[in-house]
Amino acid sequence: MKTQEELTEIVRDHFSDMGEAATLYVQVYESSLESLVGGVIFEDGRHYTFVYENEDLVYE
């Protein structure tokens, strides 16, 4: 099982292909040891929320 830090790095790496991230945040109260819930805000103003669970990243 991966730590939240490892899950955060996986998510950060995925979003790095989409541009320069200004902020990546984790909603600790919705996350667990198995999943990471949060969002990313890019330098150009785009904002996505995400759920990373079971090696699957879903974002909108």
Results as ranks from 00 to 15, higher is better:
Val40Cys: 08
Lys2Glu: 01
Thr23Asn: 07
Val26Arg: 00
Asp13Glu: 13
Glu60Ile: 13
Val28Leu: 11
Glu53Pro: 02
Val11Thr: 02
Glu5Phe: 10
Ser32Arg: 07
Ile10Glu: 04
Glu43Trp: 10
Glu6Phe: 07
Glu9Thr: 10
Gly19Ser: 05
Glu20Trp: 14
Ala22Glu: 06
His47Ile: 09
Leu7Asn: 03
Arg46Ala: 03
Ser16Leu: 11
Gly39Pro: 00
Ile10Gly: 02
His14Ile: 14
Tyr59Ser: 03
Glu30Ala: 09
Glu6Gly: 04
Glu55Ser: 12
Leu7Gly: 02
Leu24Val: 12
Val51Ala: 05
Gly45Leu: 05
Asp56Gly: 12
Ser35Asn: 05
Gln27Asn: 12
Glu60Leu: 11
Ala22Leu: 14
Ser16Lys: 14
Glu5Asp: 08
Tyr48Met: 04
Leu7Glu: 02
Val58Trp: 12
Leu7Arg: 03
Ala22Thr: 09
Val51Arg: 10
Glu30Ser: 13
Met18Cys: 14
Glu34Tyr: 09
Tyr59His: 05
Glu60Phe: 13
Leu36Tyr: 06
Glu60Ser: 10
Glu55Thr: 06
Phe42Ile: 01
Glu5Tyr: 08
His47Pro: 00
Arg12Leu: 12
Glu34Gln: 15
Ser35Tyr: 15
Val40Thr: 01
Leu24Ala: 02
His47Ala: 05
Ser31Ile: 11
Leu7Asp: 02
Leu57Met: 06
Asp44Glu: 02
Thr3Trp: 07
Phe42Ser: 01
Thr49Ser: 06
Gly19Trp: 09
Asp17Lys: 15
Tyr29Gly: 04
Leu7Lys: 03
Val28Phe: 13
Ile41Pro: 00
Thr3Cys: 14
Gln27Asp: 11
Leu57Trp: 06
Asp44Ser: 03
Val11Arg: 03
Asn54Tyr: 07
Asp44Asn: 05
Ser31Phe: 11
Phe15Gly: 02
Glu55Arg: 10
Ile10Val: 05
Val28Ile: 12
Glu60His: 11
His47Gly: 03
Gly38Leu: 12
Ser35Lys: 15
Met18Lys: 06
Asp17Met: 14
His14Ser: 05
Val51Lys: 10
Glu53Met: 14
His47Phe: 08
Glu43Gly: 10
Thr49Asp: 00
Gly38Arg: 02
Gly45Ser: 03
Met1Trp: 11
Ile10Lys: 06
Glu60Ala: 10
Asp17Ser: 15
His14Leu: 15
His14Lys: 12
Ile10Phe: 07
Asp13Arg: 15
Thr23Phe: 14
Ser16Arg: 14
Ile41Asp: 00
Asp56Val: 15
Glu55Ala: 11
Ser32Thr: 09
Asp56Ile: 15
Gln4Ala: 08
Phe42Trp: 04
Arg12His: 04
Val51His: 08
Glu60Thr: 12
Thr8Tyr: 11
Glu9Leu: 11
Phe42Ala: 00
Tyr25Cys: 12
Glu30Arg: 07
Asp17Ala: 15
Asp44Val: 08
Phe15Thr: 01
Val51Asn: 02
Leu57Glu: 02
Asp56Pro: 02
Arg46Thr: 06
Thr23Val: 13
Leu24Gln: 01
Ser16Val: 07
Leu24Tyr: 07
Gly19Pro: 04
Asp44Ala: 07
Gly39Ala: 11
Val28Tyr: 13
Asp44Thr: 05
Ile10Asn: 03
Gln4Leu: 15
Gly19Gln: 04
Gly39Lys: 08
Gln27Phe: 14
Glu5Leu: 08
Tyr52Leu: 08
Ser32Ala: 11
Thr49Met: 09
Arg46Met: 03
Ser31Met: 11
Glu60Trp: 14
Ser32Phe: 09
Tyr48Thr: 00
Thr49Arg: 08
Leu36Gln: 01
Gly19Lys: 04
Ile10Gln: 04
Val11Glu: 02
